[in-house]
Amino acid sequence: MSQPATVDTLYPGRWWHTLPDGRVQCDLCPRDCQLHEGQRGACFVRQRVNDAMQLTTYGRSSGFCIDPIEKKPLNHFHPGSSILSFGTAGCNLACRFCQNWDISKSKDMDRLMDQASPQAIAAAARRNGADAVAYTYNDPVVFAEYAIDTALACREQGIRNVAVTAGYIHPAPRREFFAVMDAANVDLKAFTETFYHKLCVGHLGPVLDTLAYIHHETQCWLEITTLLIPGENDSPAEVNELATWVARELGPDVPLHFTAFHPDWKMTDLPETPLATLVQARRIALDAGLHHVYTGNVHDSEGGTTFCPNCHAALIIRDWYDIRRYDLTASGHCPHCATSLAGRFGPQLGHNGSAFGARRIPVRLAL
């Protein structure tokens, strides 16, 4: 278990070893960065200091907000609830299309203005009526020690934990990280090694391993998101291959979200994803055997609705992050045919029986 650290200090990193030539290798993710004294890894936030690995962003955040759980996106994890979201800086992938690039690609530590201990974050979630804390904005893998400590503090307060991640992590830290997470949305960026190599400077295999691990070997609820980029990963053949893999390897009840790309970071020369592409991808994935396929970043009533996989009744109707109708029993069953809906559902919708809605409320934390 990670030990508490004071904020605004270097924190001893875990998952590293010294090589025979004296370099220190980071064992957190498949990048396996090998560092001389003073050097930082590709994520920028893990640094060799005094012959050891240090996390430079422990206790420092790029900001806190209360969001709807549907924004993560999670459609089958306590719908209508609110979640305290935060991130730090840095990332262990180098996606040319990153839509949070000002945070994930930041090398300016002065951006991390909000400071908070894990206990302060848990207290802030409870104080603001949030049902969970989300580790998001940049990939929580790169601040895993901070995320794990915060998740443990949240669990002591009865607050759930949600990871929004690309899943690019080695097996040993993966076990510790997802052991304290209650839900995860994993960004499966494409289904070809070429895409991961060319546009993310990474590999597909470790992400597929993470997806299988979460679903089969943990109690963490899993949903998947794929950002469809015109001409890069949106072909019907690739969408079908991706959906078929999910249905075969993870099962038909794992929700899959197809979301719309908008030009950003180093890919401003491409158009936004047409709604028709998302609708087609959803239909392909449903035909491949998945029960719950969604569209995101667009207005698409059908693509935002949760249907019963048995009788096909509309059970949760959404307009983006707003829930317009909620028709589940207290135990999470379809009221029309009694089919149990896959997911995590409480006895009521959201907090105190009402949905949080589409609000986004900035929060400042004091030390």
Results as ranks from 00 to 15, higher is better:
Ala125Asp: 10
Asp319Arg: 13
Asp32Pro: 00
Leu204Ile: 01
Thr194Pro: 00
Leu199Asp: 09
Phe97His: 13
Asp149Ile: 01
Leu55Ile: 15
Ile229Leu: 09
Arg325Ile: 03
Phe143Tyr: 15
Val186Thr: 06
Val24Pro: 02
Asp269Gly: 08
Ala366Asp: 10
Cys26Asp: 14
Phe258Tyr: 15
Arg126Trp: 03
Gly289Ile: 11
Lys198Tyr: 02
Leu55Arg: 05
Arg60Ala: 14
Pro255His: 01
Leu315Trp: 06
Leu256Tyr: 04
Asp102Gly: 04
Asn297Pro: 07
Asp108Glu: 09
Ile214Ser: 06
Cys95Ser: 06
Ala338Trp: 00
Leu286Trp: 08
Ser81Ile: 02
Val246Asp: 00
Ala212Cys: 14
Ser61Trp: 01
Phe195His: 09
His336Asn: 13
Leu93Arg: 10
Ala190Gly: 10
Phe191Thr: 02
Gly303Val: 08
Ile316Met: 09
Asp300Cys: 08
Phe195Val: 05
Arg160Trp: 11
His170Pro: 00
Ile316Gly: 05
Thr268Arg: 13
Thr329Trp: 03
Lys105His: 15
Asp8Cys: 13
Ala247Pro: 02
Gln157Trp: 04
Ile317Trp: 02
His197Asn: 06
Pro206Asn: 03
Val254Glu: 04
Ile69Met: 14
Gly251Tyr: 07
Cys65Asp: 14
Thr295Asn: 15
Glu176Leu: 08
Thr6Ala: 11
Asp102Val: 12
Leu275Met: 10
Pro79Asp: 01
Thr56Asn: 03
Val141His: 06
Tyr135His: 11
Val279Cys: 07
Ala281Arg: 09
His312Glu: 15
Thr9Val: 15
Asp187Val: 00
Trp320His: 11
Trp221Leu: 15
